[in-house]
């Protein structure tokens, strides 16, 4: 464990807790894409299948439970909680995210490190996580504005990915044989997707005007 990865995990945990807190407190999910949240739930479900079979550490297991619990709770709130569901913007959140699931599954069947059930699903979860934010970014552009909590959510998610890249650089130089091309490439693609959001987020912060 290094400071970059710990900071990255904490930032990631805060991003999902900020979103869950927003939805739970103000009973609204305005501006949030349920499709992105469903993709994240699938990412965690397919990545943490080994949660009971391979124990890494208390921290690792605890964080997996936090991510699984929070992502499924957010989907539950947005789909089944009456008050919250009413604020869901169905007309604008129209990204065909099942195509993302299908293409990531096909890609994982083609490109993986080992052809085993767990490894292919783990690789699938990496590909899917890289594109999971797309429905949210599309919804953001459609609604042309963003309330600050959703902005913070996306900002923290981007921060977690940036810190993970620093973690891989650190591990590459400190641990022999630490080479995971698939993880690195998917992580880089995912971080680049946030780049233009960061640009506009920074502009709105610098000019101290509403992000739109």
């Amino acid at each position: 464990m290094n400071i970059f990865r710990l900071a990255g995990d904490m930032t990631h945990m805060f991003s999902v807790l900020v979103l869950l807190l927003k939805i739970h407190t103000i009973k609204s999910c305005a501006g949030v894409s349920v499709k992105t949240q469903e993709l994240y739930a699938i990412v965690f479900a397919t990545r943490y299948l080994d949660i009971f079979t391979s124990f890494v550490s208390i921290y690792n297991t605890f964080m997996k439970l936090v991510f699984l619990g929070s992502s499924f709770s957010i989907v539950w709130y947005m789909r089944y909680h009456k008050a919250v569901h009413r604020t869901y913007d169905r007309e604008q959140d129209t990204f065909r995210h099942w195509f993302l699931v299908l293409s990531c599954l096909l890609l994982a069947l083609l490109i993986h490190e080992k052809f085993t059930f767990l490894e292919v699903l783990w690789t699938f979860s990496l590909y899917l996580e890289a594109v999971a934010i797309l429905p949210q970014l599309v919804l953001l552009q459609r609604t042309r504005n963003i309330d600050n909590l959703t902005g913070q959510y996306i900002f923290l998610l981007g921060g977690y990915r940036g810190l993970y890249i620093l973690n891989w650089i650190y591990r590459y130089f400190t641990e022999p044989h630490f080479v995971h091309w698939i993880t690195w490439i998917t992580g880089l693609v995912q971080t680049l997707l946030y780049a233009d959001f960061f640009y506009y987020y920074f502009l709105s912060w610098k000019n101290n005007k509403k992000l739109n």
Binding site: V56, K64, N167, H180
Partner: peptide, 10 residues
């Protein structure tokens, strides 16, 4: 000893 591909990251 953990194999290098061990999934120790989240």
């Amino acid at each position: 000893s953990k194999d290098p591909s061990a999934k120790d990251e989240l």
